[in-house]
Amino acid sequence: MKKLLAQPASGQRVSVWLLAAALVLYPLVFSDAFYRDVGVTFLLAAISASAWNIVGGYAGQVSVGHSMFFGLGAYTPLLFYTLWGWPPLAGIPVGILLSVGLAVVIGLPTFRLSGHYFSMATIAVAELIRIFVGTWALVGGAIGLQGPAMARGWWDLTFRGDLPYYYIFLAVLALVLAVTFALERRRFGYYLRAIKSSERAARSLGVPVRRVKLQALALSAAFTSAAGSLYGVKTGFIDPDSGFGILVSVQMVIFAALGGAGTLFGPLLGALILVPLQTASNTWFGGGGSGLTFVLYGGIIVLIARFEPGGLFDLWRRLAPHLRRRAHAA
């Protein structure tokens, strides 16, 4: 009994189950199309931010161009559908393979250098791809690509309502978090955090730093690509800006950083706060709202960097003991 009470993880475990139950029940309770759409948007944001988190949060290699993987994931299924009528489901693994290949191409040269170099390379490569795709007629140029209008079967992943998408996305989110959780506890997770703290010290202890960083980037790219594919098939439409645009990368970074980069549930928490906010500002301000949203995002990112680089989870960890003490005193 005493042991059970002393177990700090038990409270966390209860919260996780509650969260899971809430996410499963949400679309059933809020069956309105608008709320379901917000839910799907939230899940997608949480998936991609959690994917970013593997390399940007745990390994501390801050990518500001993750849209390159998202875009590859979104484009590939729709491209193969457009060219050869492949079912989008078949294009998803190809997108993942391409993304992993791209991750290696970027990681190999930059991971030998300081982390700034990696960040700079990611944003430049993402922009290169965005411009290139916009000029390439085969992949739809500036107009983009469309998916199947009518489903020929479930493998086309083209559904009428949002509900199937919601549960598919939820399953993928669960997968990303489960994989992250498993890695966090293994040697790989320890190595990632060691690398984030001091590469030099990590190497002196035999950590194969470049290989581990590359593996983290590849894994992160794979999940980000899957998130992009989900976006592509759900929307049934993709263009250079919604696939490869800088704002796609910005969202991943800000969701993860606000909640807590390098924590399991940080990206999810960030998305939980910001997605409703973004939806609200878009509804209130209409189209002009999105510009304002990014003013706000810029401001939030600056404030996080300046005052709380650990994000909200870190803030909570520091404040919780004080609050608890005050509650006891009262």
Partner: peptide
């Protein structure tokens, strides 16, 4: 931390760019 370094100027870029748009 590296994250704070990158995010500081990256966030500033967004702030300035979208304020200018606005």
């Amino acid at each position: 931390p590296m994250l704070a370094q990158i995010l500081s100027s990256f966030g500033l870029a967004l702030l300035l760019r979208y304020t200018a748009f606005w």
